[in-house]
Design a protein around this nucleic acid. Sequence first.
DNA 1: GCCAACGTTGGC
DNA 2: GCCAACGTTGGC
Length: 151
Amino acid sequence: MQYWLMKTEPEECSIDDFAKDPSAVIMWDGVRNYQARNFMRTMAIGDEVFIYHSRCANIGIAGIVRVTRMAYPDPTQFDTNAPYFDPKSTPDKPRWDAVDLQFVRKFTRVIALDELKNEPALANNPVVRKGNRLSVIPVTKDERDAILALL
DNA sequence: GCCAACGTTGGC
DNA sequence: GCCAACGTTGGC
């Protein structure tokens, strides 16, 4: 079992979108960064993912979801009408992948970025680094335990 | 909304 | 292969 953190702007997809139907499976599409894609390709079913809300009033970790389907070609890359359309991608040579995610839990409060920055166990995690743009981030077991201990 | 930091693109 | 220009991310 591996642990992850994925960033999202809550106006696009928030922990509440998972929580409102805990049985629903949401396709995590639109990742257009090679490093993030490569991390997604190493995800396994059952891996736990912290949902991080960025670019919003309450920045931080809002809850946990889990992987229900391993990486597969992101259909939005072929959709000329989608904002994530990639003209350099073809069905026999897809560039981008998606995974499927399902609700696990919503935290009683958002763990704020400031708290993450103040937690020594997270000092090496990209999420607290200034200017970091990686939207799919591996989280070690120790880091995961430290995050949950902040609740 | 601003803007620093970053990843990607493309001319050379 | 370099690197300037560009577009995007994301905290503030």
